[in-house]
């Protein structure tokens, strides 16, 4: 024992694993994604084109924003099932307020509403001592009810003359759509927050070992609440963009983003072998889901097969990663 411990001090981590496994752990998911992309490019001449790439990016905007937001909550050790309906709610609030307050204030207020949703979620999960799953499930029902109540089940149209507002979702700077630029900016900012700032650092610590964080004098509750606010805020941005793109707010439909976001976050966690969710991985995860959707569309694969494919890739990627990072005793089933 004594000798093995001292040897460990000299050797670097995991010295007994092969270079191949290390390579697979880091690059495995990306290799699979690249292979799938190459496959589509061979199968369809229209797949690997700039315009198709642009289309994919445009299609994934809202989903990507929601997924990036969810990443923070999961990193901080909780769950948020209300993200999909937060998108719908902010979308409705935006469309509802534009005629009242003008577009600028409407956007600001919609984002503020989003932050409030996150704040309530966070407070209930921490000081309220409730489970994140339960709280956010309840929140999503509450929001769904409110959305129906406010809209009466009809869409809310935005006046066609609101050009400044429409620019958010429909404008272009050069060849690139404005919402794509917004997504990339949010992504960059979100990445920096996670990888470089105190906030991101503490959210990871809290999610990984809350007890150690607590003993180190880190305000654990504050960072959990912060992660919920950040997630809701991202959904808010998505909701505003959604309203602008279609010049209207739909009373339902946001719930679809929830499942995509979970898939993207867990797929993203396997990217670069980090083993836990990170913003870059999440973005690549969303890109993969939408790339598959677009590619299969071009090749003419039925919708059912797409779902099947996405599900299998998710399970395989996460499963392979778990195999590469084996724990001694595994007794966690969430």
């Amino acid at each position: 024992m004594a000798t093995s411990a001292t040897n460990n001090q000299i050797k670097s981590t995991g010295s007994n694993e092969t270079a191949l496994i290390r390579l697979l752990r880091t690059w495995g998911t990306i290799i699979v994604i690249a292979l799938v992309g190459i496959g589509f490019a061979i199968a369809s001449p229209y797949f690997a084109t700039v315009s198709n790439f642009n289309n994919i990016l445009f299609a994934m905007i809202v989903s990507a924003l929601v997924s990036i937001g969810l990443t923070y909550v999961i990193v901080a050790g909780s769950f948020d099932l209300s993200i999909g309906l937060t998108v719908t709610t902010t979308s409705i609030v935006t469309a509802f307020l534009i005629p009242v307050t003008g577009p600028f204030l409407a956007v600001v207020l919609a984002l503020a509403v989003a932050c409030c949703i996150g704040l309530v979620n966070g407070l209930l999960v921490t000081y309220g001592r409730l489970s994140g799953i339960v709280v956010t499930l309840g929140m999503s029902f509450v929001l769904g009810g409110l959305n129906q109540y406010v809209t009466n089940g009809y869409q809310i149209a935005v006046d066609y003359r609101e050009e400044a507002f429409r620019w958010i979702g429909q404008g272009r700077i050069g060849p690139i759509a404005v919402p794509v630029i917004i997504l990339l900016l949010v992504f960059l900012l979100g990445w920096i927050v996670q990888a470089r700032t105190r906030a991101g650092h503490y959210m990871s610590a809290v999610g990984d070992n809350p007890m150690a964080a607590y003993y180190s004098g880190i305000p654990v509750y504050r960072w959990v609440i912060f992660s919920f606010i950040l997630a809701a805020l991202m959904c808010g941005v998505g909701g505003v963009i959604l309203t602008s793109i279609s010049s209207s707010a739909q009373p339902v439909g946001g719930q679809g983003y929830l499942l995509e976001a979970f898939a993207a976050v867990y797929l993203g966690a396997t990217i670069l072998g980090k083993g836990k969710p990170h913003v870059l991985g999440t973005l690549i995860g969303v890109l993969f889901l939408y790339m598959v959707s677009s590619g299969m569309n071009m090749v003419g694969v039925p919708f059912a097969a797409r779902q099947l494919f996405n599900g299998l890739v998710l399970i395989l990627a996460v499963g392979a990663n778990a195999m590469l990072n084996r724990e001694e005793i595994h007794l966690k089933f969430i």
Binding site: A205, N209, A212, I218
Partner: peptide, 25 residues
């Protein structure tokens, strides 16, 4: 029964709660 944050590096654990830098670390 003291504990560390398992996914953090030794450096991150040693300085947990006292990281150098301002908003960014």
């Amino acid at each position: 029964d003291a504990e560390l944050v398992p996914s953090f590096t030794i450096a991150e654990n040693i300085l947990l709660g006292h990281e150098p830098g301002g908003v960014t670390i």
